[in-house]
Design a binder for these strands. Structure first.
Length: 331
DNA sequence: CTGCGTGTCCCTGGACTGGA
DNA sequence: TCCAGTCCAGGGACACGCAG
């Protein structure tokens, strides 16, 4: 591996001069600088970031801790963050390890900016909290959990599902079913029913715990009801639930939206392709979410955040596509 | 065998030197 | 005096040698 030493030797200068030349620092004449840059290219020099971090005690890298991450949202969010961080001169590193291990590993690599994804109410281990106390950089918690001495960006899941119910109510739906696993989203659904005075049927709510699968029998019973007794629309609380829902209703040759309208939580591009028609979705805008995170962590607004922890919620937005019809237009 | 001291790795940045 | 370049300390982890 070529080091700054090799370039210095080849250029006939000291390593400090090479360092200045390659970092565009003043104090090196242009002729020497271009000679050094040419040699660095020729010798395929790649800066040793471990050594840089050793000196600076910081890195332009954002660590992401997302234990047990899976699914499309994770993939889109990471892609968006990586792209936008790159535009700001930052790189990203992801750890899927246990949070206490991940925080320690990032510290060992002098990574001093962390994003910690954690679902609301997820218990945090004592060893994680101890590692968090020792961590000297800034941490941003996303996903709903709350942590002392850390920035927080929350997602208004309850408000998102409320918006979905509102949209369906405005289209004239009175009998809406909810399928999902998230308490907060179910609470948003119930709030919507109350607010818009929609009919409540306990069997219209299929709420099942993670990580079990959608109870097929319950869904089949629901869609098998007489037309006047069954729901006219479904609110699905994640793209994971949608895929399970899709698998079951396709077997029954159910047509969306001719027989049932559907609104799904998770604003990801795949929602345009799961069914024959693009799905109406509700959820946080991924680009907005990553931009807000980078504003906090890359210090683009240093005065705004100095000395205090940011605590904000990102609103969800409804993207109207083609999966909702008025009930009277159903077949 | 254990514990301690020293050198090495790679790079930066401040202090310093030499020549014009 | 100023500019271009050099010298050197220092950072954490680890390997190595030496003394007890």
């Amino acid at each position: 591996m070529t080091t700054i030493k090799d370039i210095a030797k080849a250029a006939g200068v000291t390593i400090a001069t090479v360092s200045r030349a390659l970092n565009n620092e003043p104090g090196v004449n242009e002729l020497t600088r271009s000679k050094i840059v040419a040699l660095a290219n020729e010798l395929n020099y790649i800066p040793n970031f471990a050594a840089k971090r050793l000196v600076n005690k910081r890195s332009n890298c954002i660590g992401i801790i997302w234990h047990g991450a899976r699914g499309l949202f994770f993939s889109h969010w990471c892609n968006s963050l990586q792209k936008r961080a790159d535009q700001r001169g930052f790189s990203t590193m992801i750890s899927l390890a246990h949070p206490d291990k991940a925080i320690r590993q990032f510290s060992e690599h002098f990574i001093d900016r962390l994003i910690f994804w954690s679902s609301p109410g997820l218990p945090l281990s004592l060893s994680f909290l101890q590692q968090k106390e020792k961590f000297a950089g800034s941490m941003l918690v996303m996903g709903g959990n709350v942590l002392e001495n850390a920035h927080r960006i929350g997602i208004d899941r309850k408000g998102a599902i409320f918006k979905a119910v509102q949209h369906l109510a405005e289209f004239g739906h009175r009998s809406i079913a909810f399928i999902g696993q998230d308490e907060e989203k179910l609470s948003g659904f119930m709030h919507g029913l109350l607010e818009f005075q929609l009919s409540y049927h306990p069997d219209f709510i299929i709420h099942y715990p993670r990580p079990s699968s959608l109870p097929e029998a319950k869904l089949l019973a629901l869609i098998g009801k007489k037309p006047q007794e069954r729901p006219t629309a479904f609110v699905l609380d994640s793209h994971g639930v949608l895929f399970e829902f899709n698998k079951i209703v396709r077997k029954q040759q159910v047509r969306i939206p001719e027989q049932f309208s559907v609104v799904v939580y998770d604003s990801i591009p795949e929602m345009e392709q799961v069914f024959d028609i693009p799905l109406t979705t509700v959820g946080p805008n991924i680009e907005q979410l990553t931009e807000a995170a980078l504003d906090i962590l890359t210090g683009d607004q240093p005065d705004a955040f100095q000395g205090r922890w940011v605590d904000m919620n990102v609103e969800s937005e409804l993207t109207v596509r083609e999966s909702v019809l008025r009930p009277e237009n159903r077949s």
